[in-house]
Design a protein around this nucleic acid. Structure first.
Lengths: 210, 210
DNA sequence: TTCGTCATGTAATGGGTTACATGATTAC
DNA sequence: GTAATCATGTAACCCATTACATGACGAA
């Protein structure tokens, strides 16, 4: 029934609402197109999630938009915004570098909100994702080595292409990691007098949930 | 309860059993590693599916393996094989070029069994998959064009990488399609009298299973 | 006035994983 | 004899999709 909400969807909603208040319809469009969501997010999934989050006090209806036309009878058209608690939760979830952040469905959402977290946390997530993929690579390579000659050409080609795709993502991650490191380096060299940027939103040693 | 079995899993089981009889445990390993399955297939998913398929008469227990040690009391260790009906079903499902074959979860499984279907059907599936991806590309490109300046750099980078990955797969598909076309051409030019050499002409796509 | 899009919501259902329970076989 | 792996199976749960029902608003 109302028992929805996987972490990924909650983070997505929190993150999008942290950028601007909006209603469910718009949220759906953005989750579907902007994050690495892959499939279309359905209302049957989104609305129950919004309700739950509202009950938990993470979001509220935003009554500041469109205040003059106070027509109480109008159905729907609810604009949601984050509460203080919701903002806190977003900071926590987005920065969480635990294993759940490195898998396929979650990583994209985390990445899309990298602008809201510290370089340290970005690095943690990026590196975690990369080593996750490297494990996968290792697994595929070893099964391939063990059974290459027994596989027909199409199965082999499928494996080859899969390997190639993952390798491509690993290279991408490596570039991103290098950039973040340069960034960190630059900030460190900049000297300790700059307080603002270093750990901005969340203390460097963020929690591991789960 | 026993109401499992999406098309992908059924096709996977049928295809693997068409290569050799085996038991559930081995099936799970192969589905997980050989096809483009992505995640680990769970027993909670596989065994109910096998039962259903057995009830439908697509598979049976293979008693020919290990016949001397006729110990009827032994639990489990059931080797499954295809029935005639199962072989028929496999041929039908594997060749089916409908829209369901082009989406992410199904395409890999279909591709892995390309060795069992005709060049025509391979082309249908390959082309369907490609146009599916091209639609996706078009969608991403247009939303990107509409909102590029409003996106923060990480979201943008995510889109860019997503685009790149899909483009990569499209190029891969195009190569495969070209190979299949050359193959078909060669067979046509070869004339109706030579039946034997059908798939031998082009390196990448040779050899039917076993 | 009707069509397309915006907008919200629910019920049924589907198909999967997790965690658990059980036991045989092999290697050390 | 014991640990690891092979092997089969069930029940509980999770979370998403599908299909449906409803209705407002703007433009042609």
């Amino acid at each position: 029934m109302a028992r929805s909400r996987g972490d990924a969807l909650e983070l997505a909603v929190l993150g999008l609402l942290s950028q601007a208040p909006m209603h469910g319809y718009e949220l759906r469009k953005r989750v579907t197109s902007l994050l690495g969501w892959g499939r279309v997010l359905s209302y049957g999934s989104l609305y129950p999630c919004l309700r739950t989050m509202q009950q938990e006090g993470l979001i509220t209806e935003d009554t500041t938009t469109e205040p003059p036309t106070a027509r109480p009878s109008r159905r729907g058209k609810v604009v949601y915004k984050l509460t203080a608690e919701g903002k806190e939760r977003f900071a926590t979830l987005a920065s969480a570098g635990g294993p759940s952040a490195w898998d396929d469905e979650n990583f994209g959402v985390h990445f899309a909100f990298f602008g809201s977290i510290s370089t340290e946390n970005r690095l943690r997530i990026l590196e975690g994702r990369r080593s996750r993929l490297e494990e996968r690579l290792e697994g595929v390579r070893s099964t391939l080595a063990r059974s290459r000659e027994r596989l027909d050409s199409y199965t082999l080609e499928l494996q080859r292409h899969g390997l190639e795709s993952v390798e491509h993502e690993v290279r991408w991650l490596t570039e991103l990691i290098d950039n973040e490191r340069v960034d960190r380096q630059a900030r460190a060299a900049d000297g300790p007098q700059t307080i603002t940027s270093s750990a901005g939103t969340v203390p460097p040693a963020a929690e591991n949930r789960e």
